[in-house]
């Protein structure tokens, strides 16, 4: 759901650029050298996996395709704020090198997918873990959190489109949510499978300190 140039009006894209840029700057200032140095290989690995998996559009109903977003995947591996920075990195590479998502919409895309869909999804995971008890239900919490993260990101995009007078909220919101409810099932399947595979292959990657 990378928003292209032209969907958002100036007040909206400028506002979202300032919000995302401000949060990114604040987060980067707080990340300490000692904390980051040992985690660079995992950050690179996560960014590479998210990028590659995002290229793989799968067909869903009604002539539509969807692709992995990876916000919850990223934040579970790295922690919410490192995950946010990593998602921002991937979105910036996609925008600048691959023309996926407009430059004016980059702030909005970082906000929707990097912040709400990722950091928001991460805390949803924590919430679902409290609701469904025990280690055995970890996959269920991954699935629920990643499905909801897609819905949250799609809802943010609908708000921005309506704020830009591109499409009314009463029309845009149900359209975005119904399209992404199906795509979210793909997201949940991929997130859960990938994270459980990493638990199995290299549990030490899942056990690093996260922030």
């Amino acid at each position: 759901m990378h928003i292209p140039d032209g969907f958002l009006d100036t007040k909206t894209w400028l506002g979202m650029t300032l919000v995302s840029g401000g949060i990114l700057a604040a987060v980067l200032r707080r990340i300490k050298h000692a904390d980051i140095v040992r985690r660079i290989p995992i950050i690179g690995m996560t960014a590479a996996l998210v990028f590659a998996a995002q290229m793989l559009n799968f067909p869903v109903a009604g002539g539509t395709s969807g692709h992995f977003m990876g916000g919850v995947f990223c934040c579970i591996l790295l922690g919410p704020w490192t995950g946010f920075v990593t998602m921002s990195l991937v979105l910036t590479v996609q925008c600048l090198i691959f023309q996926d998502g407009g430059l004016t919409a980059l702030g909005a895309n970082i906000f929707n997918m990097g912040l709400i869909g990722s950091v928001g999804g991460f805390y949803l995971y924590g919430f679902f873990r409290l609701l469904i008890w025990g280690d055995r239900t970890r996959p269920a919490a991954y699935a629920l959190a990643s499905w909801t993260s897609i819905m949250l990101a799609a809802a943010c995009a609908a708000f921005e489109l309506s704020f830009s007078n591109t499409i009314e909220l009463s029309i845009g919101m149900p359209a975005m949510l119904s399209a992404h409810a199906i795509i979210g099932i793909g997201e949940a399947t991929i997130t859960t499978t990938a994270l459980m595979a990493i638990w199995r292959i290299k549990p030490e990657i899942m056990q690093i300190r996260k922030f």
Binding site: M45, L49, A52, N57, I183, K202, E204
Partner: peptide
């Protein structure tokens, strides 16, 4: 070295599955 298998997995996905990705419009 720890993360190398996953980098390889990402490269394989990008190399050999991406040409088969659906070109239908995405959700948005």
């Amino acid at each position: 070295k720890t993360v190398l298998p996953f980098l390889l997995a990402a490269l394989l996905l990008a190399a050999f599955l991406s040409p088969f990705a659906s070109s239908l419009p995405d959700g948005l």
